[in-house]
């Protein structure tokens, strides 16, 4: 209700209007997203990088990917952290609003998939709020929950590493958000097949 009022009162940025318009149709595309952050507190911590890859018809589309490093010079400086990794990274770099805009353009109306994806979404929503946009409207699937469902366990949590080992997936070095996203994507297609949903 409040969202709806806001919508009347406030003029959204153009990219957000485009994003909302995409939800008129349903998507068969899944975007596997991994977010690297400075910590676990959505209010205080910031996003450092995104890595994402799409899954369509149970096939991971390597070409349909998204990765970006966010230039958080201010945050790093304020907290006395090293910004070396920003400088050394070969990935494309964007300032926070541009990065979020690019991400929103990329995901469109796809279903988001991640490991503890709700935290990622919360982080993104926080930034979106600063940018005078609404919250992400995408459906979201969590591989950890899918795994728990498959094994019928609810009282145990599984790190990404646990899951990769459990399904005997090839271990990569896992040093970037993209590598994580790829691992999650492999987990996702496997879990999706085992749970048998379309």
């Amino acid at each position: 209700m409040i969202d709806w009022i806001k919508k009347i009162n406030k003029e959204y940025p153009d990219f957000w209007k485009l994003y909302l318009a995409k939800f008129e149709s349903k998507s068969n595309r899944y975007v596997v997203l991994s977010t690297e952050t400075t910590g676990l507190n959505p209010k205080k911590d910031v996003i450092l990088s995104f890595g994402a890859v799409a899954v369509v018809n149970d096939v991971i589309r390597i070409g349909d990917n998204f990765e970006v490093v966010i230039l958080q010079y201010k945050y790093l400086h304020d907290n006395g952290l090293s910004n070396e990794f920003l400088i050394e990274s070969k990935l494309s770099k964007l300032a926070e609003p541009q990065a979020i805009q690019a991400l929103v353009d990329y995901i469109g109306n796809a279903v988001l998939v991640g490991h503890r994806i709700h935290f990622d979404i919360e982080m993104i929503n926080d930034v979106l709020e600063k940018m005078d946009c609404g919250k992400l409207k995408n459906e979201a699937l969590d591989v950890e929950i899918m795994h728990q469902k498959l094994l019928d366990i609810t009282n145990k949590s599984f790190s990404l590493e646990d899951l990769v080992k459990h399904y005997k997936l090839p271990l990569n070095e896992r040093n970037s958000a993209s590598d994580d996203a790829y691992s999650i994507a492999l987990l996702f297609v496997k879990l999706k097949a085992r749970l048998g949903f379309k």
């Binding site: 990917n65 990765e67 494309s92 993209s178 590598d179």
Partner: peptide
């Protein structure tokens, strides 16, 4: 746009 998975 970079693609580190493709690189791997």
């Amino acid at each position: 746009m970079s693609n580190s998975v493709a690189e791997n």
